[in-house]
Design a protein around this nucleic acid. Structure first.
Length: 332
DNA sequence: TAATCAGCACGTCAATGACT
DNA sequence: AGTCATTGACGTGCTGATTA
């Protein structure tokens, strides 16, 4: 396989070289002297032809390899196009307001909101990945149908993530599956390290942690390595989870779902309101973390796209120069 | 060495869209 | 209409680098 090594230097110039390699996408150039982001990409297996877009392997500075379709191909939704979409939206709104006539000027705050409103990172990335096979896809929250999962390494975005006092991460997916990851691993990838499930047959290779089907207080308990217990409440329509030390009777700062219908006094109502608020805050906390993770992924995707576009741009310029030389031979 | 600054991660609030 | 997920904005704390 022929490998093109494109190095983007700090001054913006790009160096370009060719190399023969069996595994071009494994090529590592240390690149210490380069810009940390987008400083260097390795592109393998190009060979763009009209009508047959080429798959490009782009190696990011972090060592991550990304498959990206060449940009010279049939129209595709690109993350780069997002601002254009926004422009269209703004134009539409402005037109509507103009047609409204006496409605006047939009409130500046509203305008700002309209301008800033954009599709979610998951949507953008998934739309991109549906057309660009190599782009990693962010799993939908609803993809919890375990029966359709080929194997346990499928990345499912967990609903809740807890950290035990021993540093372990416990993720509880919507399907009720519990995943445990050891510290030191990053994000969802770490969740693949150690997995157990309480629904259906255990997937091959998964580590089953001790599981008590039903305790006296009507909860399900999962004993986690590190002397921690994950307790799932069975009352109420909303599953709640606790992480307890097995010897302590009181929960460690995690709220339980109270059974509805048993609220009478104002104090109980207040407690219920507090409980709801804490639950909402906890969920939003997790959502914010997840959102930031997606945003990072989105930015990474953008960066990889930029890298590819730079390469393509350079190739096109070179091609143009070649064609110019062919079509306009010197007459002297 | 203390003060300052930049960058980052996090928690929270509020607004919005999608869904039921 | 209510609920929930998502995300921008804001404030805070921590950490490493820089400077007086």
């Amino acid at each position: 396989m022929t490998t093109e090594i494109i190095e983007s230097q700090q001054d913006g110039s790009i160096t370009h070289s060719m190399a023969e390699s069996e595994s071009a996408h494994m090529q590592t150039q240390a690149g210490q002297n380069l810009i940390p982001t987008l400083a260097q990409v390795s592109v393998a297996g190009s060979g763009t032809r009209r009508g047959s877009p080429a798959v490009t392997l782009v190696q990011l500075p972090s060592g991550q390899t990304v498959h990206v379709w060449g940009v010279i191909q049939t129209p595709q939704p690109s993350v780069i196009q997002s601002p254009q979409i926004q422009t269209v939206q703004v134009a539409t709104i402005a037109e509507t307001d103009e047609s409204a006539g006496s409605e006047g000027v939009i409130d500046s705050h509203k305008r700002r909101e309209i301008l800033s409103r954009r599709p979610s990172y998951r949507k953008i990335l998934n739309e991109l990945s549906s057309d660009v096979p190599g782009v990693p896809k962010i799993e939908e929250e609803k993809s919890g149908e375990e029966g359709t999962l080929p194997h346990i390494t499928t990345m499912a975005v967990p609903t809740s993530i807890y950290q035990t006092s021993t540093g372990q991460y416990i993720a509880i997916a919507q399907g009720g599956a519990i995943q445990i990851s050891n510290p030191g691993s990053d994000g969802v990838q770490g969740l693949q390290a150690l997995t157990m499930t309480n629904s259906g047959a255990p997937p091959p290779g998964a580590t089953i942690v001790q599981y008590a089907a039903q305790s006296a207080d009507g909860t399900q308990q999962f004993f986690v390595p590190g002397s921690q217990v994950v307790v799932q409440a069975t009352t109420g329509d909303m599953p709640t989870y606790q992480i307890r030390a097995p010897t302590t009777a009181l929960p460690q700062g995690v709220m339980m779902a109270a059974s509805p219908g048993s609220l009478h006094s104002p104090q109980q109502l207040a407690e219920e309101a507090t409980r709801k608020r804490e639950l909402r805050l906890m969920k939003n906390r997790e959502a914010a973390k997840e959102c930031r993770r997606r945003k990072k992924e989105y930015v990474k995707c953008l960066e990889s796209r930029v890298a590819v576009l730079e390469v393509q741009n350079k190739k096109l310029i070179e091609e143009l120069e070649t064609l110019k030389d062919i079509c306009s031979p010197k007459t002297d």
